[in-house]
Design a protein around this nucleic acid. Structure first.
Length: 254
DNA sequence: ATTCTCACA
DNA sequence: TGTGAGAA
């Protein structure tokens, strides 16, 4: 009898919890070799193999129910198929993680940039063509609230994970987000009068729009398109009281 | 030390 | 799909 081990010994051997071993038994994927007179579960070599088999399939995110089916009735072809499915799932996961990684890197980089340039000055800079997806259109007086966000909700999944673009033109505000594909909306490449600023209250935004108009007329720039207000919403993670904005307008020097 | 059951995430 | 607590 001594060549068999108890459940806690098996759990230490395989680095899993005692609980989990019993759970596998309840689900019908691993049974003890026999149960001792004291009702203790006892396990031998075949059970150790079986447990590693189960654990391996679990690592591939295969549900226990399916492991049970596989143990009972799967052909080698079925197993091939099983692994191919897992491969696809794992690759999808890797893609997601890469996306997350890039998001983190972008955010850290942008945060550094905003930290290193606390200047609140206007500057003229060249900006490449950007494609916009129109999301919501509303009038200047209208406020954004949870309700109309919800009612105009589209297929948008990662709401505040990208920069929100507010385009001010013809007394309308159009809320957009940037896209890679070429859509009907676009912001032309060219020189833009730009400024970064922090906002604590809604009113600050309107103020900044007026200031931009002033700066523009002062320097005699003609505007060649909407005023673009970019909200770095995810950067507010670093500071709950402030949102970072960049305001832009395309200009032609006169 | 191990068993079972129940509640919980 | 597990985990944690409590009683036996």
């Amino acid at each position: 009898m001594k060549e068999y081990i108890t459940i806690s010994e098996l759990s230490k051997l395989m680095n899993v919890s005692v609980h989990q071993i019993r759970y596998f038994e309840e689900k019908g994927v691993l049974y003890p070799a026999y149960t001792d007179t004291n009702q203790y579960r006892m396990y031998g070599i075949p059970e150790i193999y079986q447990l590693s088999h189960v654990l391996l399939l679990r690592k591939l995110n295969i549900p226990v129910q399916q492991i049970k089916e596989s143990v009972m009735s799967y052909s080698t072809e079925d197993y091939r198929h099983l692994l191919e499915i897992s491969l696809r799932d794992i690759e999808a996961e890797i893609d997601q993680l890469i996306q997350l990684k890039q998001f983190i890197q972008r955010t850290l980089k942008e945060h550094n940039e905003t930290q290193n340039t606390p200047k609140e000055n206007y500057e003229v800079k060249y900006v490449e063509t950007r494609f916009m997806n129109k999301w919501i259109e509303f009038s200047e007086e209208e406020q954004i609230n949870a309700r109309n966000l919800y009612e105009k909700r589209g297929h948008l999944t990662n709401l505040f994970e990208s920069d929100l673009h507010y385009l001010y033109a013809d007394d309308k505000v159009t809320l957009c987000f940037e896209s890679n594909e070429s859509t009907d909306m676009r912001l032309e490449k060219g020189k833009y009068l730009t400024k970064r600023f922090l906002v604590t209250e809604e009113n600050d935004i309107l103020e900044e729009i007026n200031k931009l108009h002033e700066a523009q007329t002062e320097k005699q720039y003609a505007s060649l398109g909407p005023i673009v207000l970019i909200e770095r919403s995810y950067l507010s993670m670093f500071d709950n009281h402030n949102l970072i904005y960049e305001i832009q307008v395309k200009i032609s020097e006169v």
